[in-house]
Design a protein around this nucleic acid. Sequence first.
DNA 1: CATTAAGCGAGACGGTACGTCTAGTCTTATG
DNA 2: CATAAGACTAGACGTACCGTCTCGCTTAATG
Lengths: 206, 206, 206, 206
Amino acid sequence: MESSTTHSDNTRHRGNRHGRSEEARQAVLEAADDLLAERGFAGVTMEGIAARAGVAKQTIYRWWPSKVDVLLEAFTEDMAEHLTPEDLGDLGADLRVHLARLADFLTESDPGAVFRALTGQAQHDPQLAARLRDDHLSHQRTRDALPLRRAIARGDLPADLDVDTALDHLVGPIHYRVLVTGAPVPREFTDDLVAAFLDRHRAGPR
Amino acid sequence: MESSTTHSDNTRHRGNRHGRSEEARQAVLEAADDLLAERGFAGVTMEGIAARAGVAKQTIYRWWPSKVDVLLEAFTEDMAEHLTPEDLGDLGADLRVHLARLADFLTESDPGAVFRALTGQAQHDPQLAARLRDDHLSHQRTRDALPLRRAIARGDLPADLDVDTALDHLVGPIHYRVLVTGAPVPREFTDDLVAAFLDRHRAGPR
Amino acid sequence: MESSTTHSDNTRHRGNRHGRSEEARQAVLEAADDLLAERGFAGVTMEGIAARAGVAKQTIYRWWPSKVDVLLEAFTEDMAEHLTPEDLGDLGADLRVHLARLADFLTESDPGAVFRALTGQAQHDPQLAARLRDDHLSHQRTRDALPLRRAIARGDLPADLDVDTALDHLVGPIHYRVLVTGAPVPREFTDDLVAAFLDRHRAGPR
Amino acid sequence: MESSTTHSDNTRHRGNRHGRSEEARQAVLEAADDLLAERGFAGVTMEGIAARAGVAKQTIYRWWPSKVDVLLEAFTEDMAEHLTPEDLGDLGADLRVHLARLADFLTESDPGAVFRALTGQAQHDPQLAARLRDDHLSHQRTRDALPLRRAIARGDLPADLDVDTALDHLVGPIHYRVLVTGAPVPREFTDDLVAAFLDRHRAGPR
DNA sequence: CATTAAGCGAGACGGTACGTCTAGTCTTATG
DNA sequence: CATAAGACTAGACGTACCGTCTCGCTTAATG
């Protein structure tokens, strides 16, 4: 939350040679988030963000190339702490909790809505798609994989498990419902995904 | 002015008391398709379609409410015959072939690109999402389900199988790769999906 | 005042394939005039004209390249009938009346204010200067010369009079006061200009 | 870095408690002049001057209220020595030389171009008009009047001559050509103005 | 000789207007 | 009566300057 200003007094600067105004930055990110929530992606415009944030358009263009960059930063800031799976010491429990939280994040939360919008826009914009993958998705997949890696370390899963493919089987159907069919993603659905995964990979060898 | 219309009368009407011009309709659909292929979704504009099709904007608005409707109709027309699973008499074979064709359709084909664009846009537009589901997705899911229903009829799958959930497990990871991670979807991946499904549901009765 | 529409009913069209909207044209010209009168040249902006005229900016740009073109057209329309010297049959009387009216036009009238603004702007813009000269000034000088030409025809002035130079002597000091010194241009001043001219050119030969 | 500062200390201060930086002042004036010459009045912007002069915008605003003030100062500095009529002891000769130099100044010189631009801008800005009159024009008119006043003192012109009006007759047509018609102002034209003046005012007493 | 205060370059800020683009509506003449 | 043509209102786009505001540096007179 502490921007890279050199001084550390309580007086908030409003933009000068030390760098940008943290105040303006926050106002822009919040305005973008609010507009997305209230009016949808098409309702997020540079003019709208500027007006709502009480900021000049040029200030937005100075720091963000486009409105998706604003949303991307807002998104990154919002989630950060979210969606890191707990370590309950049990693969099944870890996965059940994590997938349920993932489903909830994607379908219910505000940052989840931003994610859906950005993923939608990424279908039209390969550069955005790449940025989403590099800046966000790769980290999330690393977090998603934690329960599997811990289970492998414990010997609860075979050491040669194809983790990437396993993740796709686990989270793919959730994203599919969210992005394509629009069907709800209840706890039974995520639990069943975990059950299918455990059936195959843990029951087999034992 | 000579477009590839399907009918072959020598007298081409251009819109009059006989009803709408098939010529104009085809020109619009093709122009929209071409623009999507050449310049991406943002490059598809009503003005652009009209200019390219040699058609007045009003003519487009008369028959289609928005540009996504044009794309939707072009898409529907294009796919129709695609993606109806064959009946080889064997569940595993049916699914393997079908999922491989689905993956190929989504990642390689022109209508697949339209589908990705429309699904992307549907994230911003709930009405489009509903229309996509009603006009297209529901039919596709019915087709996707055919191998499962045949297997149930044959007794190769339990009668109480939750077909919807099963479909989500089968096609969800494919869509996830296509829409989210951008990873390729090779034959091994789709075959593995089928293997996981068969392990779980056919091994049981054995 | 009758624009070049082909039909002649009383129904005012609002822009279609027959051509532009006369309604919009008039609204733009009036708005520009009003703004110049109320807020000065800097207060005349494309956005301001559009807002005041209840017209889209694009409509202005469609027909006029810049705000000075709008003012130029407004000016041309406004003056037309003005400043054609009467024929009283007497050189002195003709000139005295005409110069007095010219002075009044330049210092008091609304179109005179537009003329001053345009002439001011022409100092920054050679193209505007050329257009002002070609479209307006040359015609005005032809009108200004009428009394002289009639006097020559009557034999009241020598046939070899340098009319251009004579005009400069007559109207130059008036413009100088208006544009440079800002001094008032009373009737005595214009009458004196005429007296000086007559002293030299008519009194001499006789 | 070597600018033409008037003081000649070896240590050039760059602005401190002793007062403003002469270096910065000169750089600003030169930059404004250069921009006017190269890009016209519209090309003279505060940002442009600052960038070209290597000076902060604030420094300009600290000393000049607007860009026309910068130009006005540059202009005043440039002309000063120009356009003071010589005393040849003969009214006709004095006037002929002076008007020719005036015409040349207005049409050919760099400061003449600045004068035209400022006079143009003054049509849009009454405050600038007043300042131009007070700071510059009044002095110039005093200088212009010198030959007349000397002739009056010598008895070559009537003591009750209306000097102001006489000046308007002499220099008005020149300014009119420069500012309005754009016609050239050759020596014959200025000589003829003098001839007309002498005819009227010197011939009388004869 | 350290302090202090003014001028400086730098540059971010809230704004306004620019000129362009596309959306979606409307009107008319043609076939 | 559907069409091509195209003018219309509306509003977002991204850019250029405006004039204001810190900020940290430099510098010379003051204490």
